[in-house]
Design a protein around this nucleic acid. Sequence first.
DNA 1: ATCACCTGTGGGAGCGCTCCCACGGTACCT
DNA 2: AGGTACCGTGGGAGCGCTCCCACAGGTGAT
Lengths: 351, 351
Amino acid sequence: MASHGARGRSGGRPTLEEVAARAGVGRGTVSRVINGSPRVSEATRAAVEAAVAELGYVPNTAARALAANRTDAVALVVPEPETRFFAEPYFSDMLRGVGAELTDTQMQLLLIFAGSDRERERLAQYLAAHRVDGVLLVSVHADDPLPDLLAQLEIPAVISGPRSAGETLPSVDSDNYGGARSAVEHLMAGGRRRIAHITGRLDVYGAQRRIDGYRDALRDAGLDADEKLIEAGDFTEEGGRRGMARLLQRRPDLDAVFAASDVTAAGARQALREAGRRIPDDVALVGYDDSAIARHMDPPLTSVRQPIQQMGRRMIDLLLTEIADRRPAVSRGLERRQVVLATELVPRASS
Amino acid sequence: MASHGARGRSGGRPTLEEVAARAGVGRGTVSRVINGSPRVSEATRAAVEAAVAELGYVPNTAARALAANRTDAVALVVPEPETRFFAEPYFSDMLRGVGAELTDTQMQLLLIFAGSDRERERLAQYLAAHRVDGVLLVSVHADDPLPDLLAQLEIPAVISGPRSAGETLPSVDSDNYGGARSAVEHLMAGGRRRIAHITGRLDVYGAQRRIDGYRDALRDAGLDADEKLIEAGDFTEEGGRRGMARLLQRRPDLDAVFAASDVTAAGARQALREAGRRIPDDVALVGYDDSAIARHMDPPLTSVRQPIQQMGRRMIDLLLTEIADRRPAVSRGLERRQVVLATELVPRASS
DNA sequence: ATCACCTGTGGGAGCGCTCCCACGGTACCT
DNA sequence: AGGTACCGTGGGAGCGCTCCCACAGGTGAT
């Protein structure tokens, strides 16, 4: 092995210093060119760029990170087990949007799962080491301690669904309230009057907003908002099946169901089928997410589409702004940092 | 903003130096403790560990990377578009295995897609900057330039399926030959005699090995190896459908099919159904991979299981060894670095 | 002519770590 | 007693960058 002093001397990668020597300028000037500073004359810039090309110079990330105290990396943190990540198209769409928005940047994206305690501990360690400049948090429950940890470490973060109406972190969400309304209004337009709702996890703010939208749509149409028509679910298929079974028992006369997710709707469909109800003849069904499940269901499922990829892009937007704006946290927080994107109802045969 | 000199002085994260002062030892000693060197007395170690705990010290990764010329990160490179990554359980299983093996380490895993030209260029830049200590390459085709690039940059790499019998990179693979044999032998044991094969992509070495296994199993059983019973596929569903249709035309008397993947088998099943053949009564069907598709098919598909998670673990094993062993490339290459793992036939109703 | 103020540039200092050399101390031989 | 070996330890030098200060030279106002 080469001695310490000679480490990487001759055979190694070229350094800023070597580029500077080759271009006949100082180190600082090369740094300016590399980082796109405008304070460089055109001629000098050209000379430096030529030297960079000739030597095949690539900046040393570690040195830059050390000197500038930044990492040029952001993490997408998924507080779920990997299995759910792969099972739900929501995450892959989000990843795609985030990745697309990042290709124009020199930012690196890290995908981190924090489903188990073990993984969460590792993540905490990782964040404590400030190995990323910012964090994207998706699918966070109301009582998750992660946002507080991030605040304490002063790491910029953006959340995909606000935890409450008073969310302090910047967030991007789809219009859960409006989406739910459009689903219920669609069902009413089809002549349905006894419309049930199987909710999502009640500790998820978005699920609450969908309930609100459901209630308000009925109320505004002058229909009785019978609480017996609401059944708590949890976004899973099994939750949908059980909820539907209970609803059928309580209100056998229902003629439509709005499920808080496509997966929930799939469970509901199963229970309806077991009870001998036809879709949509006896009971109309509408889901949420417009995932692959909706298209492949039998019959194809009417669903509320969220622009998930776009949400991913906007999250990156917000995060990069946060990172760039880094300044005393106190002076912030007044700007509009809560983005809400519109949903779209996709009608299919189930309603 | 604080002046440069004072950057991170008071409020910032503690440094090695501060830990050393607190513990009443020198910088070098703290470094030794942090890195688990055995050359530290028990008393000193305890003192340092106490100081680390009290100050909440976390090493600065960038400084370490700069000084030690390593990154403590490895990349899992997927030379496919993201969509395929999420569609095929192969990748997620691999990721899970790799991730599991890495949790005991302080190594960071990066997931990098290199499906488009744009992404590949970004990857090249990334590798040129030596931002990872090693690379895991999955699903590489025979003519992919990536392995050469890695060799040129002298970045340790492990490949998931050898590109040829003379693969120079360390590799981990399942026993494609044996797996194919077991499938064909299983069909013969069930009394089938006219067994067809729909192959995988012919530029994938593993697909070739499956063909070899198929041929040899038939030959050893004294059956004619009729080339008319072999049809080229490409691992896709559509390829399976087309291949099956052609086979039925050419050899309407066939009584079994071995498909090079479960997805291919799904396509074949469709063609068989359209032709009015019953599975397994008229034609027995065996797939490869034992993915979720196999379990959910109607009828459930007999399939050859590969220990994909385990393959991921072994790949990491090999890669970490490569990284640790880093020495002039010339003196290497003699050790056994080609790992082959056994497969297992999972019989179900389709055969 | 003097002053103020730009713009472009060079290079010192410093980021926080690892690596290695040097050194004092102890143990074991001759 | 002297020599040799090793162990544990401290700290200098250096990794390759960014940040900032200083400065030369130009420009325009006074």
